[in-house]
Design a protein around this nucleic acid. Sequence first.
DNA 1: TTGACGCATACCCATAAGGGAATATGATCG
DNA 2: CGATCATATTCCCTTATGGGTATGCGTCAA
Lengths: 117, 117
Amino acid sequence: MIVPMARAATTSDVFNAIAEPQRRDILVLLRTGERPVTELARELGMTQPGASKHLRVLREVGLVRDRKAGKQRLYGLDARGLRPVHEWAGGFEQFWNESFDRLDAYVQELKQARQEE
Amino acid sequence: MIVPMARAATTSDVFNAIAEPQRRDILVLLRTGERPVTELARELGMTQPGASKHLRVLREVGLVRDRKAGKQRLYGLDARGLRPVHEWAGGFEQFWNESFDRLDAYVQELKQARQEE
DNA sequence: TTGACGCATACCCATAAGGGAATATGATCG
DNA sequence: CGATCATATTCCCTTATGGGTATGCGTCAA
């Protein structure tokens, strides 16, 4: 049976995991240290279940780690999975520096030419 | 009326645009130069409508530009939009370098202790 | 042991997303 | 104008996603 897939499962792909703004917010927040779910939810203005769900996705792609601390569960950052993202995007560095120099110049020329008409 | 939103529209967010593997493939391919849709589709093994749809998303977030070339439409890379992604991920660099040194050490200790039992 | 607390899941709902096939739109050429 | 090639759109279908609320479950304190 053919199973159409709407998109790569968010749980298996770091790129997908960080596609969600709130999850990026969580990661940024966790740079300042571990946090229990409730506090994290409060700081980011989300419901506790909402936070738990996002944390689960982040945990499954390995961007976050959790450890039990008594009644609580502390979530901490494991940013190693972001390295591939950084490198992938970095692979385009020469292009955002160079590629459109000529295009930009051309656009400038057009504007100028139009004003001189 | 409250309108629940499943996720930020893919057309408005670069992070979402690059969450889809095939779109990343397109961007990588375009590093080697402009291409008409059909050729791009053939090289990446996707259908023409499929390619067009992905290209549309990429175009709407500004990662790709198109220009008419006679009967064809050439798509080219505009990687400037990837710079924020690179920088965002780069903001975690210190964490993937340092954060888990202690954790890794701890894991090593555990392994060693287990062998010595 | 019984609450209370902290967190994860389950369930429900509406929407976004992708794929495939068919079709519309655009442009070129004879 | 008519035929044809290159693309973009549309329609249909199935799954993924995110949010909300209710609820299950483990842990700690009295």
